[in-house]
């Protein structure tokens, strides 16, 4: 009904309002880090961010009208990609640094204390440089984040019941709205038509890189948990298990 009439401008303003506030780690960081202390800080922050991510998703127009099972699946599939895109956005003006939160910033080299994490830091820094080169705008960033959420499970579920089919078609219409919004945001930048098309392509191609880093990160976190380097608990544990216990 009324959502069909919601244009890209309104859609973007709604998802801009849905943006979560800055999250602080609020811990006394004892440097130098140990493998455990760094992993604990990273996972504590992720757990806090996840709670706000759920509230964020609920504010995306149309999200709550999807079936509850779709809502759950989408969030379980994409949470680390969403965290990583947020990290990239916060770090975009700080070359060589990863700004996990205003009170938790790491240099690339600090990744050395956690086995296997430097490779992930480097991929995140590379994606951040790419977004810096492209001069990513806030309007584009919020569209990309919504795109990650809505696209995350599209190719891994096949709807069976009529309720699932209906939710699926709502999801596809929602994705249309997000794509329209991104196209609209790009059209405001004063580029030629061809440049706009190229920008859309470059921005969306970066999402496959983020998916890749997220998969690497998921494996890494599982390894850290299995080796008892870090205790994963609460919401983060639930989200992590969703990605590992299927089989």
């Amino acid at each position: 009904h009324h959502r069909a009439a919601m244009g890209p401008e309104e859609f973007i303003s709604r998802i801009m309002e849905a943006e979560p506030p800055d999250i602080y780690l609020m811990e006394d960081l004892k440097k130098p880090f140990t493998e455990t202390s760094m992993m604990m800080s990273l996972t504590n922050l992720a757990d806090k961010e996840l709670v706000l991510m759920i509230s964020w998703a609920k504010k995306i127009p149309g999200f709550l009208e999807l079936s509850l099972s779709d809502q759950i699946h989408l969030l379980k599939c994409c949470w680390l990609e969403i965290l990583m895109l947020g990290l990239i956005w916060r770090s975009v003006d700080h070359p060589g640094k990863l700004i996990f939160s205003p009170d938790f910033k790491l240099n690339r080299e600090e990744g050395q204390c956690v086995e296997g994490i430097m490779e992930i830091f480097d991929m995140l820094l590379a994606a951040t440089s790419r977004f810096r080169e492209l001069k990513l705008r806030r309007e584009e960033y919020v569209c990309l984040k919504a795109m990650i959420l809505l696209n995350s499970n599209l190719c891994s579920s096949s709807p069976q019941t009529s309720e699932e089919l209906e939710s699926r078609s709502k999801l596809l219409r929602l994705l249309d709205s997000v794509i329209d919004s991104l196209v609209w945001a790009i059209s405001k930048l004063g580029l030629t038509t061809q440049q706009q098309t190229l920008r859309l392509g470059h921005l969306t191609m970066l999402l496959s890189h983020i998916r890749h880093v997220s998969n690497k990160g998921m494996d890494h976190l599982c390894t850290m948990k299995r080796k008892n380097v870090v205790l994963v608990y609460d919401l983060l544990l639930e989200m992590l298990d969703a990605n590992t216990s299927s089989g």
Partner: peptide, 13 residues
């Protein structure tokens, strides 16, 4: 109830 389900189904603050 899982925490995710609980957060999804509670009314916004």
């Amino acid at each position: 109830h899982t925490k995710l389900l609980q957060l999804l189904t509670t009314k916004p603050e």
